[in-house]
C-alpha cells in the first residue's frame, strides 16, 4: 500500500469548562474572543489516527484543515508540532454565524480544492456537541462515512478496515477509499508535541500573522515555503455565499438562557404537597428537569 493523502478536520473551540458571563453575544452566537481557546479534544484523537496511518504506511501525508477566525491558525501549528505535514486555515467573515450545515458546506468546498484519499475528523466538538459536521461533510462530498471510529485495523487495496465503538459493543466495518471517518474520545490519545517538529514549524504563520508580526519573517518564509499556512477565503474555495453564515444556516438561535443553579443556602421544606409543588415548579422552570 502506497502512502495516503489524509485530511484531518480540526476545530479550535472555546474551553467550555471555563465559561464566563460574556460568553454569548447579544445575537445569541458565541463570543469566542472572551474564552480560552483549545484544540477540540476529539479532533486530537482524529489526528492521532492519521499519524498512526502515517507511521504504518510510509509516504502518507497528513494535512490539517480548520475553519475559524485568524487565531485558529494556532491549532494548525499545534497539529504540525505533533506530526502533521501541513495545514490550511479556512477563514472569512462570510462564515461567521454558520450553523453545522453552512459549516459543512464551507468545509466541503475547501476539501474539493485539496487532494485526498481519506478524511478524518473528531466525532464532535465540545462547544456544540452536535456530531453533525463530519456526516454532513461526507454527504456534501458524496462519500461514505464511518462514525465512532476507535481504531484503524488496516488498509488493503483501497479498502480500510475500522473498528467502531457503539453504545453496547464494537462493530468492525470495511469502507472503500475515499471516505470520511469520525473518531471517538475512546480512541488512543494524541501523541505530544515532538521537539524536532516544534523547531521546524515554530515560525509557521498565515499571511495575516506575517503582516502583524513584530519581527520580519518574510525572508524566512521565502527560504522555507513550508512555513506558510495558507489562508483560504470564500473566493479561494469558490463557495456560494447564499449557503454561508447566518443567512445560509437553516437553524436560528431564537433564545439563550444561562443556566443558573440557585439556592446556595439550603432551602428547608416540609413534606406538605404545597412545598413539593413549589419545588417541582422551580426545577422545571430552571431546566433542571426537562
Amino acid at each position: 500500500m502506497k502512502g495516503l493523502k489524509i485530511i484531518v478536520l480540526a476545530k479550535q473551540v472555546p474551553d467550555t469548562r471555563n465559561v464566563g458571563k460574556d460568553a454569548m453575544k447579544a445575537d445569541g452566537t458565541v463570543n469566542r474572543a472572551a474564552l480560552p481557546a483549545i484544540f477540540n479534544p476529539e479532533d486530537l484523537n482524529a489526528l492521532e489516527q492519521a499519524l498512526r496511518i502515517k507511521d504504518n504506511y510510509p509516504g502518507t501525508t497528513v494535512t490539517l484543515l480548520t475553519m475559524g477566525p485568524g487565531r485558529a491558525a494556532e491549532i494548525v501549528r499545534e497539529g504540525m508540532y505533533r506530526g502533521a505535514d501541513k495545514g490550511y486555515l479556512l477563514t472569512d467573515r462570510a462564515f461567521a454565524g454558520s450553523d453545522t450545515l453552512a459549516t459543512s458546506y464551507a468545509i466541503s468546498c475547501a476539501i474539493k480544492k485539496i487532494n485526498f484519499d481519506l478524511i478524518i475528523a473528531g466525532r464532535q466538538a465540545i462547544d456544540g456537541d452536535t456530531a453533525q459536521v463530519g456526516p454532513q461533510v461526507a454527504e456534501k462530498l458524496g462519500l461514505p462515512q464511518v462514525t465512532y471510529a476507535e481504531h484503524v485495523d488496516k488498509i488493503v487495496k483501497n479498502k480500510i478496515t475500522i473498528q467502531r465503538r457503539l453504545e453496547r459493543g464494537i462493530e468492525t466495518v470495511t469502507a472503500p477509499l475515499p471516505c470520511l471517518i469520525t473518531v471517538n474520545a475512546t480512541a488512543p490519545e494524541c501523541r505530544p508535541r515532538n521537539a524536532k517538529h516544534l523547531m521546524k514549524f515554530k515560525h509557521a504563520k498565515t499571511v495575516t500573522e506575517l503582516q502583524s508580526a513584530v519581527e520580519d519573517y518574510y525572508k524566512l518564509h521565502e527560504d522555507r515555503p513550508y512555513l506558510r499556512i495558507p489562508e483560504l477565503s470564500v473566493l479561494d474555495v469558490e463557495a456560494d455565499t447564499n449557503w454561508l453564515g447566518l443567512a445560509g444556516s437553516p437553524t436560528k438561535v431564537k433564545a439563550i438562557e444561562n443556566v443558573v443553579f440557585a439556592a446556595k443556602d439550603a432551602k428547608q421544606l416540609t413534606a406538605d404537597q404545597k412545598d413539593l409543588d413549589w419545588l417541582m415548579g422551580e426545577l422545571v422552570a430552571n431546566h433542571t428537569l426537562g
Binding site: 465559561v19 460568553a23 437553524t251 436560528k252 438561535v253 431564537k254 439563550i256 438562557e257 444561562n258 443556566v259
Partner: peptide, 21 residues
Amino acid sequence: LYQIRPAFGGNIIATIINPDC
C-alpha cells in the same frame, strides 16, 4: 418547532428554530 437543548457544556440552554427549511 422550538428545539430546546443545552449547549456550551451545559452552561446555556438554547432554543433553536428552523423558520424556512
